[in-house]
Amino acid sequence: MKKIILLVPLLSLASFPALADQALASSRNCMACHSVDKKLVGPAFKDVASKYAGAKDSQALLAGKIRKGSSGVWGPLPMPPNPRVSEADAQKLAAWVLSVK
């Protein structure tokens, strides 16, 4: 009897951008207050994506809110600033949030 061995290449998160960017959101503690599809302390990412869909410069706007914080948009609780998130990571996170459906 012959043995058949299948070699499957290992795939990194970089092979799946949506998963990679969700992992980035987790590593930057975004998921402590937000989830993809349910309101926690802050709004669900799908609700943020819906609110800003088609808005002019929405990615830059959200990246700014990620780094500088925000208040009054989704209720009385402010989103604290995240100055440790680099501009590049803020742009990736904003793009990912806007892609959530």
Rank of each mutant, 00 (worst) to 15 (best):
A53H: 14
Q59C: 01
S70W: 04
L98C: 05
K65T: 00
A94K: 07
K56Y: 03
S15A: 15
L13W: 11
G75A: 07
A63K: 05
N82E: 07
D47H: 07
K51Y: 10
P83R: 12
Q22C: 11
R28C: 09
W74H: 06
A18R: 13
P9I: 09
A23T: 07
K51M: 09
S58N: 15
D47Y: 01
P83T: 09
F45W: 10
G42I: 04
P43N: 01
S12T: 15
A88S: 14
A88Q: 14
W74E: 06
V48L: 08
A53Y: 09
M1H: 09
G75R: 07
S12I: 01
K68W: 00
R84F: 12
H34W: 04
A88P: 03
S15F: 09
G69I: 05
S86C: 02
S99W: 00
F45A: 00
A49T: 02
V100Y: 01
S35G: 08
L77V: 14
L93P: 05
A55Q: 15
G69W: 07
D37I: 05
S12G: 14
A44L: 03
G69S: 10
G54Q: 08
E87N: 08
D89H: 07
C33I: 02
V73W: 08
I5V: 15
S58K: 15
K3E: 12
F45P: 03
L98M: 12
S50C: 01
G64A: 03
S27F: 10
S35Y: 00
M1F: 06
L62S: 11
I66R: 06
L98F: 08
S50V: 00
P76H: 06
G42F: 01
L10T: 11
